[in-house]
């Protein structure tokens, strides 16, 4: 995610010092997104270079007060208006490991799956506990924090669903009478012949 835009959106509300920005950021994301003060200043430096924020002269304590520029406001509006692209090249280690486990002889795929399921389930339980510990008389910040926790919860849930799906598919494959486990590796993939699709028929019909 873009820490840059998150900080800009805070500055769009009022000018702030670096340490204030960090505190405001954390109150909205909870323990889920650790951000150190060094990252805040590095990010502010880039924003200033790009003309999206301006720093006031330092006060007596040597701290700069940062304010958003007009270009900065435009950038915030653009950020909110533009959907985030699905990560084109997100490398999911779980999926990767599983792909290799399935094709590695002697690996107990069920055990690999279950170990991952237990770990993800534990994370999901932990997130749920964190969420429950929040004050239900929620102010806006409590709401924003718990929505971030929810996103972790839904992602973990999706992973477990996917693991369940993998397990069902692996079991079905193992149970199939024609399981080609013993088939020679060089056998031509006869069943992979491209089937005629409905779309092709439709195209033909349209001609």
């Amino acid at each position: 995610m873009s820490v840059k835009h998150a900080l800009l959106s805070l500055l769009a509300q009022e000018p702030m010092y670096g340490y204030q920005l960090r505190a405001e950021f954390e109150s909205r994301t909870g323990a889920t997104w650790p951000l150190n003060i060094g990252q805040v200043y590095t990010t502010l430096g880039r924003l200033e270079r790009d003309g999206l924020v301006a720093a006031d002269e330092p006060g007596a304590d040597g701290q700069h007060h940062y304010r958003i520029t007009d270009d900065g406001r435009t950038a915030v509006l653009d950020w909110f208006a533009t959907p985030v692209a699905r990560d084109q090249a997100r490398r999911d280690e779980v999926a990767m490991k599983f792909a290799f486990a399935v094709t590695s002889p002697g690996v107990d795929v069920g055990a690999v799956l279950q170990a991952q399921r237990r770990a993800t389930m534990k994370a999901l339980q932990d997130y749920t506990r964190l969420k429950r510990s929040g004050d239900p008389a929620e102010g806006r910040e409590e709401l924003s924090w718990s929505l971030v926790v929810d996103s972790l919860i839904f992602a973990a849930e999706a992973e477990i669903r996917w693991l369940d799906h993998c397990e069902a598919r692996v079991r079905r494959y193992a149970a199939a009478p024609a399981a080609p486990a013993a088939a020679p590796a060089a056998a031509p993939p006869a069943t992979r012949a491209k089937p005629a699709t409905g779309a092709e028929h439709a195209e033909e019909a349209a001609r």
Binding site: E26, A31, P34, Q114, R118, D126, T128, R129, L130, S133
Partner: peptide, 19 residues
């Protein structure tokens, strides 16, 4: 019953937090 998963108490969770 092949396996089980248990959660940490929430104070342990928060103590493990980087803040």
């Amino acid at each position: 019953v092949v396996d089980e998963s248990a959660s940490e108490p929430v104070d342990v969770l928060l103590a493990g937090d980087a803040r």
